[in-house]
Design a binder for these strands. Sequence first.
DNA 1: AACCGCGCAGAGCAATGCTCTCGTTTCGGC
DNA 2: GCCGAAACGAGAGCATTGCTCTGCGCGGTT
Lengths: 234, 234
Amino acid sequence: MNASRTARERVRAELIEEITEIARRHLARDGAAGLSLRAVAREMGMASSAIYRYYPSRDDLLTALIIDGYNAVGDAVEKAEAACPREDHLGRWLAICHAVRDWALAHPHEYALLHGSPVPGYSAPQDTVGPAMRDALVFGRVIADAHRGRLLDPPGGYPPAPESFGADAERIREAVLPGLPDDIVARAVTVWPGLYGAVSFELFGQYNNVITDRHATFDYAMRGLGRYIGLPEH
Amino acid sequence: MNASRTARERVRAELIEEITEIARRHLARDGAAGLSLRAVAREMGMASSAIYRYYPSRDDLLTALIIDGYNAVGDAVEKAEAACPREDHLGRWLAICHAVRDWALAHPHEYALLHGSPVPGYSAPQDTVGPAMRDALVFGRVIADAHRGRLLDPPGGYPPAPESFGADAERIREAVLPGLPDDIVARAVTVWPGLYGAVSFELFGQYNNVITDRHATFDYAMRGLGRYIGLPEH
DNA sequence: AACCGCGCAGAGCAATGCTCTCGTTTCGGC
DNA sequence: GCCGAAACGAGAGCATTGCTCTGCGCGGTT
């Protein structure tokens, strides 16, 4: 019967959900290194071996948490950006930046899992690339919108994008920056890691005893990068 | 006797050196997660418990490796920068950037240890801050030199540094950017994480299936950041 | 009603970090 | 030169981990 089979699969899905939920809590508290399948099993009141019916290995659990993490950032970024007036492109960019930073500060271990060292024998399975791109997609939409409105005026005095960048630019255009010229795409590839570099620096302790007003400093830096790619000050 | 006492201490120092050496090899091959005190002891032909006479815990070994790593980057950066003509400030900046990137590509696991997730129960002991600053010191010297030669002309059209940044700027001035105005210091705090963000993106796999000509793309991005802080194109 | 398979528990294996104890070597003050 | 104290090394042991294998029992299928 289809209904009964679904019943079985439903309880299975629920168990997977519960395992993932507990694992996420452990991750948030102890970090990826402290995540133990046995501890999760203990908390669920089941034998450690039973967990393997749902996640074939610890790394698979990690992968699931990575995907969840990317989706959480994606949600936060999308929501923050959606709350801005459409024509305030710089504001939308800043909203993205602060959403990433706020989420990272609220979930440091999960952020470390996403943008820190590749944890196990790594690999980064294909399932992660979709969720991992969501924030960049939002970023691309902001830039593309500004460009469509002829509002992009990147400051001059910078070197042009290198010749060899053409092929990469085309691929990036198709994925996240439709219709934008090579120079803007190249600047995007400068700006986007800049955002994550700033967040990682702050989160991984490089700003200890250096920067105190971190919100303002971050905001300033992101404003600068926004200008650099051509977003107009309002 | 001083010599005899030194004899004991010398063999001790040699053993510590050997342990660290082997550990570094294991780290380079297997990553921080795979570094095992027992494996190191095995390779040295001594009991695992004996290792603890030299490193009281695994984390202490990791800390030693972190310091070594920072010093290795520092060496590479200093050497690369020293090889440039003094008046070619943009070239010196680019040399720094490429030195960091090249070192990271050659020692991915060690780089991850330095700039990835804080590994154990983290903490970052005080001994690491000196070595950790060496590359930034070189960077600061380049900018300060350019400023002293009145060659710094940061492109306009960017927002000024926030009010609250003054105190932080003063601290940074004293440490690495002597004599520079707040605006430049603030831009430095944008640019410096930008460098590491770019390296981390490339190394941690965010550029997979995105950027192919990574050297050129990196060089372009760093040129842009160099211009942003005011280094003159030559 | 017979049966097949999924889900679970328990034991077990190979590792790990770290501690303790117990001999042995070495150093330094007498 | 001698002897006690400190440093050193080995071995066993504890708690913990990821993961596998072997059964057992209930649930759903035919």
